[in-house]
Simulated assay, not measured.
Amino acid sequence: MHSIKTVIIAAAAAALLSDSALAFPYDFGRPATKEEMALWDIDVRPDGTGLPPGGGTVAEGKAIYADNCEGCHGEAGQGGIKDRLVGGQGTLATGHPVKTIGSFWPYATTLYDYIRRAMPYPAPGSLSDDETYALVAYLLNLNGIVPEDARLDQSNLAKIRMPNRDGFVPDPEFRTITNSR
């Protein structure tokens, strides 16, 4: 008897979920506007496509780092509870590679993109574009990539040649993908 009830309940549920029941036109939400989509379209490519207007200096970045990053990454990008950000140059081909911004990352624009999207913890996306440029300038300076008086912006960030730029070899299968922007 128990199995007959189970079959009847299953048949009733199947009827409710039939094509006619699913054909009910749900009216949830609305299409996003171009302005709303632009808020999410913030990726920055290696060639600098997608970098916003603005800029920042090493000195400005030092203060931003102290307020937002030092607690996790340590003073001057080392010794914190999270990833080390500074040093490691020349270690990638050794038995103990130290992967940092200065030793591993191939593009300065990737650093900007990552900080803009994912940092600082626990409030990603809370830095302004100018603050992000300044923080990138500071971190690149700590790694000996830009001078202490550097000011980074939309016009010069993509021109920075990172030490490991040639350490990444694109897969030939993906070289034919064209830029969709």
Rank of each mutant, 00 (worst) to 15 (best):
residue 135 L to T: 15
residue 131 E to Q: 15
residue 146 V to N: 09
residue 115 I to V: 13
residue 69 C to R: 03
residue 1 M to C: 13
residue 147 P to M: 05
residue 175 R to A: 09
residue 67 D to G: 08
residue 69 C to P: 04
residue 167 G to Q: 01
residue 160 I to C: 00
residue 179 N to D: 14
residue 102 G to P: 06
residue 138 Y to H: 14
residue 123 A to Q: 09
residue 58 V to S: 02
residue 113 D to A: 13
residue 73 H to W: 00
residue 129 D to N: 15
residue 46 P to C: 06
residue 59 A to Y: 01
residue 171 D to G: 01
residue 13 A to H: 08
residue 8 I to V: 14
residue 48 G to M: 04
residue 122 P to F: 02
residue 150 A to W: 07
residue 52 P to I: 00
residue 76 A to Q: 11
residue 31 P to C: 09
residue 41 D to R: 12
residue 105 W to V: 12
residue 170 P to Q: 10
residue 152 L to V: 10
residue 159 K to S: 06
residue 171 D to W: 04
residue 1 M to V: 10
residue 43 D to F: 10
residue 19 D to P: 15
residue 159 K to W: 06
residue 93 A to V: 03
residue 10 A to V: 13
residue 77 G to Y: 02
residue 55 G to F: 00
residue 161 R to H: 09
residue 33 T to G: 06
residue 163 P to K: 11
residue 99 K to W: 02
residue 154 Q to M: 13
residue 102 G to C: 02
residue 77 G to Q: 01
residue 78 Q to T: 11
residue 140 L to V: 13
residue 40 W to Y: 08
residue 16 L to E: 08
residue 178 T to H: 08
residue 61 G to V: 01
residue 96 H to A: 14
residue 54 G to H: 03
residue 5 K to T: 11
residue 115 I to F: 06
residue 148 E to K: 15
residue 43 D to C: 07
residue 79 G to N: 03
residue 106 P to S: 11
residue 34 K to M: 13
residue 47 D to H: 06
residue 35 E to G: 06
residue 151 R to M: 09
residue 28 F to T: 07
residue 103 S to I: 02
residue 46 P to Y: 07
residue 120 P to D: 01
residue 47 D to W: 05
residue 12 A to R: 10
residue 46 P to I: 09
residue 24 F to Q: 12
residue 33 T to W: 08
residue 90 G to E: 01
residue 132 T to H: 07
residue 81 I to E: 12
residue 136 V to A: 14
residue 36 E to C: 08
residue 170 P to W: 03
residue 108 A to H: 05
residue 131 E to R: 12
residue 52 P to A: 15
residue 10 A to D: 05
residue 6 T to R: 12
residue 65 Y to V: 00
residue 168 F to I: 05
residue 104 F to P: 03
residue 37 M to L: 15
residue 8 I to K: 14
residue 146 V to W: 10
residue 102 G to D: 01
residue 167 G to V: 03
residue 47 D to Y: 03
residue 173 E to M: 11
residue 107 Y to S: 08
residue 108 A to W: 06
residue 71 G to R: 11
residue 115 I to M: 15
residue 31 P to H: 06
residue 61 G to S: 01
residue 153 D to A: 12
residue 103 S to M: 01
residue 121 Y to E: 14
residue 48 G to D: 08
residue 128 S to T: 15
residue 136 V to W: 01
residue 55 G to C: 00
residue 14 A to G: 09
residue 21 A to T: 12
residue 137 A to C: 03
residue 16 L to W: 10
residue 64 I to F: 04
residue 28 F to V: 11
residue 21 A to D: 11
residue 160 I to P: 02
residue 60 E to F: 06
residue 104 F to T: 00
residue 57 T to A: 11
residue 172 P to M: 04
residue 92 L to S: 04
residue 179 N to T: 05
residue 168 F to T: 02
residue 44 V to E: 05
residue 160 I to K: 02
residue 18 S to G: 15
residue 157 L to F: 05
residue 41 D to T: 08
residue 18 S to D: 14
residue 72 C to W: 00
residue 141 N to D: 09
residue 172 P to T: 00
residue 170 P to G: 00
residue 58 V to F: 06
residue 103 S to K: 06
residue 134 A to C: 07
residue 40 W to E: 15
residue 118 A to I: 10
residue 29 G to K: 03
residue 4 I to N: 09
residue 148 E to P: 04
residue 79 G to F: 05
residue 162 M to N: 12
residue 23 A to V: 05
residue 10 A to L: 12
residue 113 D to K: 10
residue 5 K to I: 08
residue 34 K to G: 07
residue 78 Q to M: 03
residue 49 T to W: 13
residue 123 A to D: 14
residue 178 T to I: 11
residue 173 E to A: 15
residue 29 G to N: 02
